[in-house]
């Protein structure tokens, strides 16, 4: 029994179908608890007032925007090396979720920035890198849509994803070099174990991050199943026509 058994599309659908309601249930439960806790039961920050509540949307969506691209990179590599169709289709399924997460992070950031920094948008390194990430997602999705043949599309988007990742990291450093920012440093530094966010805000924030993560997982499962079915349908129709 190895993990690669799940690369069989039939097996993947059979295994994940009963899982989806549980995953989605857990995601919605976490999000409801986290967001309600954050929205109703946390105090206002003494400097930022009630805008601090935006953190429960902003940080988790930003986190997932990056992780979604990371997951696409890994599945693209798996597709190029082992040629499992499920892997390529999972990357395709994840891209629109990633772009929505990026959009949420940008929108909530703009709404938060307006009262705090007095501007909707600043060419700050973090903000700029997210805008660049958004452009990368757009290009990736556009390439998927443009190519008819599914295998060609999977190959080319995988190559684009890998090259894009290198340039995305490069852009991140270039942008840092280019401008000093308004944005505060990381809110949840894992390596140092220190926190810049106090405990009152931290617990609901973690619940929200788990919620966004599980929601992402559930959506990827649903959308991957859809892609697998759509592909099988295309193949069947092609066979019947011939």
């Amino acid at each position: 029994m190895s993990i690669w058994e799940y690369a069989n599309p039939k097996k993947f659908i059979a295994t994940t179908t009963p899982l989806v309601p549980w995953v989605m249930g857990l995601a919605i439960a976490c999000l409801v608890v986290g967001l309600v806790w954050g929205f109703f039961f946390t105090p206002d920050d003494f400097r930022q007032g009630s805008t601090v509540k935006i953190i429960y949307l902003h940080v988790p969506s930003a986190l997932m925007a990056i992780n979604a691209w990371f997951m696409m990179l890994i599945t693209s590599l798996i597709w190029l090396v082992r040629r499992h169709h499920v892997s390529a289709l999972a990357a395709r399924a994840a891209a629109p979720i990633g772009i929505v997460m990026t959009l949420i992070a940008l929108i909530t950031g703009a709404i938060w920035g307006q009262p705090m920094w007095g501007t909707w948008w600043a060419w700050d390194p973090r903000l700029t890198s997210f805008l660049i990430l958004f452009l990368f997602y757009l290009g990736y999705i556009a390439l998927w849509e443009a190519i008819e043949d599914p295998d060609t599309a999977a190959d080319l988007t995988s190559v684009l994803c890998i090259v894009g990742s290198v340039f995305a990291v490069l852009s991140r450093y270039a942008v840092n070099f280019w401008n000093q920012g308004l944005h505060q440093g990381t809110s949840v530094p894992v390596a140092t174990g220190e926190r810049t966010v106090s405990d009152v805000f931290f617990v609901p924030l973690v619940i929200c991050m788990v919620g966004f993560g599980v929601l992402f997982l559930g959506l990827v499962l649903i959308r991957t199943q859809t892609e697998i079915r759509a592909r099988r349908m295309k193949a069947l129709e092609a066979r019947m026509r011939s």
Binding site: L35, F39, G49, S50, T51, K53, I54, L57, H58, S61, I104, I107, T108, I111, W112, Q114, P115
Partner: peptide
Amino acid sequence: YAAEVLTAYALS
């Protein structure tokens, strides 16, 4: 900041 917070939540 009610307007800001509520728009952020509603949009997201």
